[in-house]
Nucleic acid binder design. Structure first.
Lengths: 204, 204
DNA sequence: GGGGTTATTTACCGCTAAGTACAGATATCT
DNA sequence: AGATATCTGTACTTAGCGGTAAATAACCCC
């Protein structure tokens, strides 16, 4: 699934790669947040002019939403793949270690754009704030459903509160995003992940 | 220590209460973040005009910093008081339950302004971003020092990694701020607090 | 090569941002 | 009362915002 408009056969061809430009936009939104990013920031980083941006991506808001889609579909994304692990404990393990690795990775801005892209923001950003909030909540619901399944599978005790367990894990993951912004290293986050797993119920 | 300029004896007296106005400003910054808050938002909420704001508080940046000082000195603040508890476990307990209570309190915006006031932001907000980051890191250092003392006191095992423990707790607390923004209730956060404490080392 | 189509460039729009000059209002001090 | 000091309200400045109109350039199809 291509996140950007596909190139038509007729007319002057686009002088930039839309996917690359979107990556650049994501980087800016990630570092500065939606409110803190201006169109000048974007066009400069993307290497295009404003009319090109508007023709290719609609407007600032739609550009942001497409950048988030890209963010979540990237190969280095760790959340959804972790859900596929065979046991609840392994799901948590992969998610926490994946987050530790990813969120402090110096190859891109620290933290998580879904957490920090529009946390507290102006009314103009209400739509994107809601979109991000939705993704955070949905992620936790998927985690909850995965833990319910784990109870059926028998790799979580039957009396486990799956919702609270998912919320606990979500809390730590989101906290790790802040920690990465605070300057914590991957190794330091890995230690936090390890400690987090100590509160995790084991197969009884 | 008064956070605002003290009233002089001569000249026309101020028509508003500076402390009350600062509370209003804090509320706006808390909900909208530094970048998302305009001077119009502020003057409207504070019930004063721009020249009064500038005369009393300097500028937007200084107003923000004063609002943060007020935030941390408020009676409902839970972080510093928790450090005074007799044992490391009680420190963690009071901090986590205090956060659960406070961050989802409907009497004010959700979450924590130190976390969400300027997480990802424009270059214009670099100073306030650094100030908030500093406070988060300092809080964790105080926590770490408290846990080191606990090892001396004997209410934490001697082989405890105080730094990691403090970072783990900081991670959960900061994660709870995001959770509160996600709409989590105090009761739901309390459950997360409970689970967090299960990873906490007990007196051996 | 010409017509149709799309992208790029430059210049601009209306609006709001943060911050301030200045005149008038209201207090204290002598 | 008068002088002095401070605050308030209106109106303003400069700069940047998100977004767009219109002319020009580059491509495909016939």
């Amino acid at each position: 699934m291509s996140v950007v408009s596909c190139t038509p056969s007729m007319g002057r061809p686009r002088a930039f790669d839309a996917e690359t430009a979107l990556e650049k936009a994501l980087d800016v939104f990630w570092r500065k947040g939606y409110d803190g990013t201006s169109l000048s920031d974007l066009t400069e980083a993307m290497g295009i002019n404003k009319p090109s941006l508007y023709a290719a991506f609609g407007n600032k808001e739609q550009l942001f939403l497409k950048a988030i889609e890209l963010y979540e579909s990237r190969p280095c994304s760790f959340f959804l793949p972790a859900l596929e692990k065979p046991t609840a404990y392994q799901v948590a393990e992969h998610m926490l270690y994946g987050a530790a690795m990813n969120m402090a990775d110096q190859a891109h801005p620290q933290g998580c754009v879904v957490v920090q892209g529009a946390l507290s923001c102006s009314e103009a950003a209400a739509t994107v704030k809601a979109a991000l909030l939705n993704r955070r909540v949905e992620g936790e619901q998927k985690l909850c459903a995965r833990f319910e399944q784990a109870k059926i599978d028998g790799d979580l005790p039957a009396n486990t509160d799956a919702e609270t367990l998912a919320r606990y894990l979500g809390t730590v993951l989101q906290g790790m995003a802040i920690q990465a912004n605070n300057g914590a290293s991957s190794e330091q986050l890995r230690q936090v992940a390890e400690m987090t797993l100590q509160a995790f119920p084991r197969k009884s």
